[in-house]
Nucleic acid binder design. Sequence first.
DNA 1: ACGACATTCTACCATATGGTTGAATATTTG
DNA 2: CAAATATTCAACCATATGGTAGAATGTCGT
Lengths: 124, 124
Amino acid sequence: MRADAQRLNRVYGAIADPTRRTMLGMLAGGEVTVGTLAERFPISFNGVSKHVKVLEQAGLVRRKVRGREHWLRLRPAPLREATRWLDHYREFWDTRLDALENFLVQQEERSTSKGRRPGRRSGR
Amino acid sequence: MRADAQRLNRVYGAIADPTRRTMLGMLAGGEVTVGTLAERFPISFNGVSKHVKVLEQAGLVRRKVRGREHWLRLRPAPLREATRWLDHYREFWDTRLDALENFLVQQEERSTSKGRRPGRRSGR
DNA sequence: ACGACATTCTACCATATGGTTGAATATTTG
DNA sequence: CAAATATTCAACCATATGGTAGAATGTCGT
C-alpha cells in the first residue's frame, strides 16, 4: 500500500532530525506546550513551531488547543509501525547476513593468503 | 556523543526514502551490482548511483569494486543502532503513554458529555 | 589498440528543508 | 477597550535532496 509507505517516509524523515528526536524525548513526560518546548532550543520560536508541525504530520504528535496555548502529546502508534518495518528487515539481516559476511570474509582470506590452487575455478 | 547522533541522522534519513528502502530489501539476498539494482527502478542509472551513495554514507551498504563492477553488500550494524534508539523510546511510550492517553481521553469524555463547553466565541 | 561496458563525476534544475523576521490571529489580563 | 501573551502564517534565504544529461574514468573482450 502506498499510504503505508508514505507514513513511513514521514516518520523516518521526522526522526532523522536531532532536534525533533530531542523534542520527542521531552514529550515523554506528558503534555507540553509549544512555548515550553521552544524555551529549550537555541532556535527561534517559529523554528520550533515548524518542527512541531513536521512531527504532527508524521502522526507522532497530537495537538490540542486550549485557549491560546497549544498542548502537544506524543502518539506512539506510528513509532510502532516504524519499528515493525525496521525489525522485520533487521532481524532477517542480523541472522542471515552476519553468517554471509563471515563466509565471504573467510573466502577472501583463503584466496588472498594462499595462492590460487590449480584446477580451481577462480571466482573473479 | 555527537557522532552517535550524526549516524542516526544519516541512517533515519536514508531509510526515509522508499526507493532506498526497496534497495535495502533487494540487498537482503546477498551481493548485487549497482547496475542490477538500477534495472529495477524507473529512474536513471545516475539517480540510482546517488541513492547508493547515500546508503553507503549511512553505513548501511558496503561497496566492493571488482573490475568494472561495484558490488554492494548490506551492513546490518547501523540498523541495529537505529532500532535501539527507537526501541528505547517506543517501549517506554507504549507502556506509559497508552495509559496516559486512556486517562486523558476519559477525562475529556467526562467533561464534554456534560455539555460543559467553555465560553464559546465563534471564530473570525 | 579499440570499442563496448559499468560506473562515477560535474553541472544543472526543481523542489524540500531548516532557519530567519515580521505581520496576523486569537486569548487572557488589567 | 487595550496591552500582553501564545501561536501560526507568509515571505524570504541558504542549503540539501532527488532527479536529469553529458563527460570522464577504468575495465573487459576482440
